[in-house]
Design a protein around this nucleic acid. Structure first.
Length: 244
DNA sequence: AACGTTAGCAACCGCACAGTG
DNA sequence: TCACTGTGCGGTTGCTAACGT
C-alpha cells in the first residue's frame, strides 16, 4: 500500500489553523457537507490535507462540540468508561455528547491520570495477572474487537473481577457485570484534593500496595469488561450507562 | 525582569480497517 | 484475491501560557 505524500511534500500547510481557514472550512461544509475529505480542501480552496480538515472539523469546528471545562459528572463518566474500555477514546467520546475523543484523551492525560495516580489507581494499561496474552491495551489490541471477536470460551472471559467496598476482590460472571451494583463508586472526597489518603474507600481499584499484590493474582476487571464491550460492539450498540 | 520549567491543548503521525473495483 | 483509497483511531509531538525561581 502506497502512503499518500504528507502535507508538507504536497506544499500544503501544517500547524495551527487561522480563523480564516476555519471560516472557509465551516462555510464549505455547511454548504456542501463533507462527503470526501481528501477532495474537500481542494474544493474549498484550502491549502490543507483532508486529514487535517477532518481533524479540525471533528475536534473543533463541529457545531455540536461542547467547549469548556469538564464537569465532575463528565470526569466520573470518563473514569468509569476508561475502567471498562481502556484507551478506546472514541468509544468513550461516544458516551459523552459534545466531547471529542481528542479532548477526552487530553483530559485523561493531563488531569484524571494524575489525579488517579495519587490514589494508586491501576490503569488498564498496566500489566495484569495470570491471563497471559490477553493484554487489552497494546495498539494492535485496541483494534481487535473489529477483527478478532473475543470468544466467550476464552479463559478469563467468563468472569470478571471487581473489588467491592471492602476491597475484597469478587469474581463475577460477565452477564452480571451489567448490573450497576458492580460499577465503582466515586464519592465526593475523590474530587477534593485534601482527601488523597482515603483512596481505598473511594474507588474500588484504588487500593493499597498490599492489596494490590493481592489483587494482582486475579484477572483485571477490564478483561471481563472488554469481552462485555466487545459483545455490544458486535451487537452494534453500547449499553446504557448505569446511574451513578 | 529574565529565565527555566511545567501543564494544557491543538494538531500531526502512522497504523489498521472497510469499502471498492 | 489483490491493490488501492478513504477514513477512523490512538499515540505522540510541539506550541504557548502560566507558574516558579
Amino acid at each position: 500500500m502506497v502512503r499518500a505524500p504528507c502535507c508538507e511534500k504536497m506544499g500544503l500547510k501544517k500547524g495551527p489553523w487561522t480563523p480564516e481557514e476555519d471560516q472557509i472550512l465551516v462555510s464549505f461544509i455547511q454548504k456542501n457537507g463533507h462527503g470526501n475529505w481528501r477532495a474537500l480542501p481542494k474544493q474549498a480552496g484550502l491549502l490543507r490535507c483532508g486529514k487535517s480538515c477532518r481533524l479540525r472539523w471533528t475536534n473543533y469546528l463541529r457545531p455540536d462540540i461542547k467547549r469548556g471545562n469538564f464537569s465532575k459528572e463528565e470526569e466520573e463518566t470518563i473514569i468509569k468508561l476508561h475502567e471498562m474500555l481502556g484507551n478506546r477514546w472514541s468509544a468513550i467520546a461516544a458516551r459523552l455528547p459534545g466531547r471529542t475523543d481528542n479532548e477526552i484523551k487530553n483530559v485523561w492525560h493531563t488531569h484524571l491520570k494524575k489525579k488517579l495516580k495519587n490514589y494508586n489507581y491501576k490503569t488498564p494499561q498496566e500489566p495484569k495477572g495470570h491471563c497471559s496474552g490477553d493484554s487489552t491495551v497494546a495498539k494492535s489490541d485496541s483494534k481487535t474487537p473489529k477483527t478478532e471477536p473475543v470468544s466467550p470460551q476464552d479463559s478469563c472471559s467468563d468472569f470478571s473481577s471487581v473489588t467491592n467496598d471492602n476491597n475484597h476482590v469478587l469474581m463475577i460472571k460477565n452477564e452480571e457485570m451489567e448490573s450497576s451494583d458492580y460499577f465503582p463508586q466515586i464519592d465526593e472526597s475523590f474530587w477534593s484534593e485534601e482527601n488523597e489518603n482515603s483512596a481505598s474507600e473511594i474507588h474500588p481499584r484504588m487500593v493499597s500496595d498490599e492489596e494490590q499484590v493481592h489483587q494482582f493474582q486475579f484477572p483485571s476487571i477490564d478483561d471481563g469488561m472488554n469481552f462485555w464491550y466487545d459483545l455490544f460492539i458486535r451487537a452494534g450498540d453500547l449499553p446504557e450507562l448505569p446511574e451513578f
